[in-house]
Design a protein around this nucleic acid. Structure first.
Lengths: 354, 354
DNA sequence: TCGTGGTCTTGGATCGATCAAGACATTCCG
DNA sequence: CGGAATGTCTTGATCGATCCAAGACCACGA
């Protein structure tokens, strides 16, 4: 069975030894260890089935040959790839997908610990679902992680109908009857945290600058500000503004609010808007953090760079990744287990602006 | 051969039809189209071997059944996965890996067009090469894309010794004899572009703020500034500074340079340093772009948000991805073809700061 | 009529790991 | 002491697509 004699040459696993033309197979290891293929397979997948001494012998042969099970063969037999698919959108220049990039890093790290890898794919220009469809039908991935669950949520319901395993980062806003596992960050809790932080510092007129009303996430974040204000019996009339997510909009909105409602602090739905507020303050010779306080959302890369540093609500993306992988393991377990949705609470990164 | 009758139910490909318990196989398509397995295989891999009408019939059956070749089986037989592995580091909060994230997006998009997918993996905490090693030995990926080729470049030489196919984003600084394909962006050309832009505007005393001398990339960028200045017969003595890549360092260095050498413009090795310069200007009541010009590097997310917007050198990451994929296709072709390294020229995104 | 392509079928073997079932020896217990 | 119950290891079949070689069938032109 030894197709290549040189393959048997002793070699330490992590040294940069030249990769043989054809890597060693299970059979090669079996021959070298003087056992059957199945025993080698068991040594890898069910070590406790072997007697300690044979296990050691097989393990030795594996190390000497630098053997690692062929993924394709294993995938074919077990009907699973240990790959998790995740679609990423085009690189938009806005700060929006910076959060997603941070999440990808966390997800890759966490899946590694669980023995999975992340397969990235891009949306086809025409049909947004073809990417999912191809990967599913060719059984290239075991499951998906989807990230943009707002806006009608076509992927979630599509995948659900296909009975494809997936976990969503983002709650099912529109479908309360959704049965898929999801993980999300409580945006309202985040803005409430920010607002309470400001109220604790003595502010009473805390303004809100958020997104258009059709944004579910935006309305959620706004509700946290509302709740915190009303929780202390404070009025919010005239203190809220809903605009586009741009620096210019944040600047205009804050200027307008300062003139009309004299707030002493701002809570914003994004760091982008908060940067707009900082600009207005600079325009008027006001010092952020001393004269007027500002809090942003997402703790983006800009936050520590503003002058003064921008206090911002930070999503616990590492924890999100951990929960997503937990849900994935449940989905792919035997039998599959679908737990309830998981809601995580963000934290507040306090800097000079508040 | 029909293991499941319902599988033959008509179904349009992109509709969210429920995925059958076991996806259709080549044999199922063959039966439905009334041809042999071999013919179906040819329809997919060698369409020109078939008569047009049978090709159409097979294609129809494929569409009706929603068939897609099983990746694992194909990978096993053809010994290739159509996956490209790329390691990503931990999510550092600095702006350094923002460029990498932008590159990942471009790479995913470009590989899609070439029929490949990107497999992300993380570095093991202990041994940085184990990730590569495992994927190689288990033949999980066809090739790698490596991105951090500075600092002794252990991955490149390790992979070369293993005869593993890979393409580097980043030139082989230390190994002129390296034989692997690479793509890089000419940092010196970028800073020269920036410097010339400033000189064209009438500046004669253009200062440089860069990184420590042990950074190859930093010295490369610095050389472009030097070349542009000397190209017009201008002196550079006292106009350069080498510091850490932080806002505070950029601020201190620019303050010092302004005091000692009275430059009217700054070219920086990074946007982070440039933000530091902007801060010094604000400290002294100077207006960036009017009193003193500033140019950064990498066109990061901060650049458009500063006040005024930061002029910055932009790496053509989309083009880099295209060239990387071209090189990959050469490497994986029959026979493998290794072209020369490719050097791309960055562009300058001009904003208010210059 | 015989060859010559073009097109498709047939029956296999193959990739490498895992599953299902069985072989064999040892131990334990009534 | 016989039979069951383990523990340990082996054998043949299997996952689904591709590759290979040989041949069947048809149509066309020489």
């Amino acid at each position: 069975m030894s197709r290549d004699v040189t393959r048997a040459a002793a070699r330490l696993p992590s040294l940069p030894a030249r990769l043989p033309a054809t890597p060693p197979t299970l059979a090669d290891v079996a021959e070298r260890a003087g056992v059957s293929r199945q025993t080698v397979s068991n040594a890898i997948n069910n070590p406790d089935l072997l007697r300690p001494d044979t296990l050691a012998r097989v393990q030795g042969a594996i190390d000497e040959l630098g053997y690692s099970p062929n993924r394709a063969a294993r995938n074919l037999r077990t009907r699973s790839s240990h790959l998790v698919g995740m679609r990423i959108g085009p690189a938009q220049e806005g700060t929006a997908n910076a959060t997603m990039d941070r999440f990808v890093h966390s997800l890759v790290e966490t899946t590694r610990e669980a023995g999975y890898h992340v397969l990235l794919f891009a949306a086809e220009p025409d049909d947004p679902m073809t990417g999912y469809d191809d990967l599913l039908r060719s059984t290239a991935v075991d499951a998906f992680v989807i990230t943009d669950t707002y806006l009608g949520n076509p992927q979630a319901s599509w995948l659900e109908q296909r009975r494809a395993p997936f976990v969503a980062f983002g709650r099912p806003w529109d479908q309360p009857e959704a049965r898929h596992p999801w993980v999300d960050v409580d945006g309202a809790a985040g803005t409430a945290l920010a607002t309470d932080h400001l109220l604790d510092k003595g502010h009473t007129r805390v303004a809100w600058i958020g997104w258009r009303k059709d944004s579910r996430i935006g309305e959620d974040r706004r509700s946290g500000w509302l709740r915190a204000m009303h929780g202390r019996g404070l009025s919010t009339t005239g203190l809220a503004s809903r605009v586009e997510d741009t620096v210019a909009s944040g600047r205009d909105a804050s200027a307008h609010l300062l003139d009309e409602a004299q707030p002493s602090a701002f809570v914003c739905a994004s760091d982008t808007l908060a940067v707009g507020v900082l600009r207005t303050l600079a325009d008027r010779g006001l010092v952020a953090g001393r004269d007027v306080a500002v809090v942003g959302f997402d703790d983006s890369q800009v936050a520590p760079l503003t002058q003064p540093g921008l206090t911002s609500v930070r999503q616990p993306l590492e924890d999100v990744a951990v929960e997503v992988v937990k849900a994935l393991e449940g989905l792919l377990g035997h039998p599959p287990a679908v737990g309830p949705g998981v809601m995580l609470t963000p934290t507040l990164t306090v800097r000079g602006s508040s």
